[in-house]
Design a protein around this nucleic acid. Structure first.
Lengths: 179, 179
DNA sequence: GTCTATAGTACGATAGAC
DNA sequence: GTCTATCGTACTATAGAC
C-alpha cells in the first residue's frame, strides 16, 4: 500500500473514531507511522487530506451505484441491505465524510448530497411512489446516523440492526406501494 | 431570559450551524453578546457548557416523552411526525448534542442513547413486532441525520420531508405489523 | 456580574538537513 | 521521500480591575 493511502486511511479512521477536532495532523501522522513533515509531503495541507477523502468516497459511491443497478433483488433491497453497518470501505468513507460535512465543510456536504440524490434516483426506478422511495432512503440515513453516533466501531451494540430484521420491512413497503 | 440561557442558546446554535471546531468560547461569547470573561463566569469551562446543553436536552426529551405517551394518534405517529425538522427546541438541542456525540463526547453519546432507548420503548407499547418498531425509530433517526448534515437551517431544501408525505408510510407499517 | 490582559498550550504549516 | 526544528496563530482558561 502506498504511503498516500496509509495516510488517507489514518485520516479516515481518526475522523470516524475520534471526530474532527481530535483528527490533528500530528495524530494522523502518528497513526500512519510517519512524521508530520512526512504527511505534509503527500498532502500539502489539511484541506488536501479532506479533498483526498472526498475523492475516495466519490469513487466508492460510483462502484456502489453500479452494483446497486445490477442487484438481483433490486436497488431498494440492495440499498437497505448494504446500509446496515458492515465496516466496508464505503461505510467507513461515508461516516468519515459525514463528520466533515457536519463541521460545515462545503465540499463534504456536496458529496453527501450527491450520493443521496443518486441513491434516491435508483430507488425511484423501482418504486414509483415518491413517499415510499423517500422512506427507504430514510431507513438508510437512519442506519448511518446510528453508525456515526457510536463511532461505528462496535457491530454488536444493542439497538444495532441486522439485514434479516429489516428486509421484511422493505418488502412490505415495496408491496404496499405497488397496490 | 437569563444570561445563562442566552449563552447556552449561542453555544447550541453555533454547534448546529458551524460544528464543534468552530464553536470556540470567543465565538459563543460574541454571539451571546458578552465577553469571554463574562461567559466563563456563568460556565467555568467549555465542558460546563456541554453539560448544560445535555441537561437541557434531557429535560426536553422528558417533556417530549410525556407528550408522546399522551398523543391521540399514538406514540409511533407522534414520533415520526415530530422528528421531521420543525426548528423546535428539542430538534435544535438534539442536533447540537449529536455534534458533541460525534466528537467522542461520552456524556453526549450517553444522552443520545438514552433518548433513543426511551423512544423505542414507547413505540414498542404500540407495536409488538420488534422489526417494525426499529424501522419506525430508524425513520426518525434518518430525519435527524438529514437535518444534522445541512446544519438544520433550511427547511425548504430539496430532499427534505414533510409529515404529510411520511404519515401514510407509518400507517402502512403499523397496519402490516398487526396482520 | 462583566470586563481586559495575558499565561500556557497545541495547532497548521514552513524551512532546510539528510 | 522523510525527518527535526520552529514560526505564527488561535485556543482554553486564569487573574485581577471595575
Amino acid at each position: 500500500m502506498s504511503a498516500r493511502d496509509a495516510l488517507l486511511d489514518a485520516y479516515q479512521s481518526l475522523l470516524q473514531e475520534a471526530g474532527e477536532r481530535a483528527t490533528t495532523l500530528t495524530a494522523v501522522a502518528a497513526r500512519a507511522g510517519v512524521s508530520k513533515g512526512g504527511l505534509l509531503y503527500h498532502f500539502a495541507s489539511k484541506e488536501a487530506l479532506a479533498a483526498g477523502l472526498i475523492a475516495r468516497l466519490d469513487a466508492l459511491v460510483e462502484e456502489d451505484l453500479a452494483q446497486m443497478r445490477a442487484a438481483a433483488d433490486g436497488p431498494s433491497r440492495y440499498y437497505v441491505r448494504t446500509s446496515v453497518w458492515t465496516g466496508g470501505a464505503l461505510d467507513n468513507a461515508l461516516i468519515a465524510v459525514a463528520q466533515l460535512a457536519q463541521e460545515s465543510h462545503v465540499e463534504a456536504q456536496r458529496a453527501m448530497r450527491r450520493a443521496r440524490e443518486q441513491w434516491l434516483e435508483l430507488i425511484g426506478t423501482e418504486v414509483d411512489e415518491e413517499a415510499t422511495a423517500h422512506a427507504i432512503l430514510l431507513l438508510g440515513d437512519g442506519l448511518y446516523f446510528d453508525a456515526a453516533l457510536g463511532g461505528g466501531t462496535d457491530p454488536a451494540e444493542p439497538g444495532r440492526f441486522s439485514p434479516e430484521q429489516l428486509m421484511p420491512i422493505v418488502d412490505r413497503l415495496l408491496r404496499a406501494a405497488r397496490e
